[in-house]
């Protein structure tokens, strides 16, 4: 539940940054202009696609996995939780790289990006906690009876 709610927050942050990047939102609420510097830098796109779009995809996947894991037939299985750990882990690594770029290369901080970094770290920790608390034999015990 925590992962789903946090991921939803992250999704809206990514959506906001992506809509600004494609020109649908005119002004980015940032305060010191750091968001614009970061978002207009060469590092704001990956493979020609705005980084925020990848954020939307990742958070969307996390929301989907966490909602799936809450459904009765999946509650005892580890699959969705393992998936959450992997997706959130990849997100933490990618976010770490982007945060490094902000600090060491671009020399500007985008507050929304920092907020997203905090969210993805929390999602990862919550996913790990979920995996830890779930019995490892859950997968087999909840296998469908044929």
């Amino acid at each position: 539940m925590t992962v789903a709610l946090l991921s939803l927050v992250g999704f809206f942050i990514s959506l906001y940054l992506w809509l600004w990047k494609v020109g649908i939102i005119g002004t980015i609420a940032c305060g010191d202009g750091g968001c614009e510097t970061v978002q207009l830098s060469a590092y704001a796109s990956f493979l020609g696609i705005p980084v925020a779009f990848f954020g939307m995809l990742a958070y969307g996947t996390l929301i989907g996995l966490s909602l799936l894991g809450l459904q009765p037939r999946w509650q005892e299985r580890r699959g969705p939780t393992v998936g959450l750990v992997f997706v959130a882990g990849a997100g933490v690594i990618f976010t770490g790289y982007l945060t490094y770029l902000e600090a060491a290369v671009i020399h500007a901080w985008c507050r929304w990006c920092v907020a997203s970094s905090v969210v993805i770290v929390l999602v990862f920790l919550a996913s790990l906690a979920g995996l830890w608390s779930r019995p490892s034999g859950g997968e087999s015990s909840a296998a469908p009876i044929r």
């Binding site: 789903a4 809206f12 906001y16 809509l19 649908i24 005119g26 002004t27």
Partner: peptide, 27 residues
């Protein structure tokens, strides 16, 4: 009960996020 509260919180977040995005649009 927990699930009800969760879905309520999820719905509130969806509405609040959508409202935020809508109000940020240009013009």
């Amino acid at each position: 009960m927990n699930m009800k509260w969760f879905y309520a919180a999820f719905g509130v977040l969806v509405v609040a996020g959508a409202a935020w995005i809508w109000s940020s649009r240009s013009g």
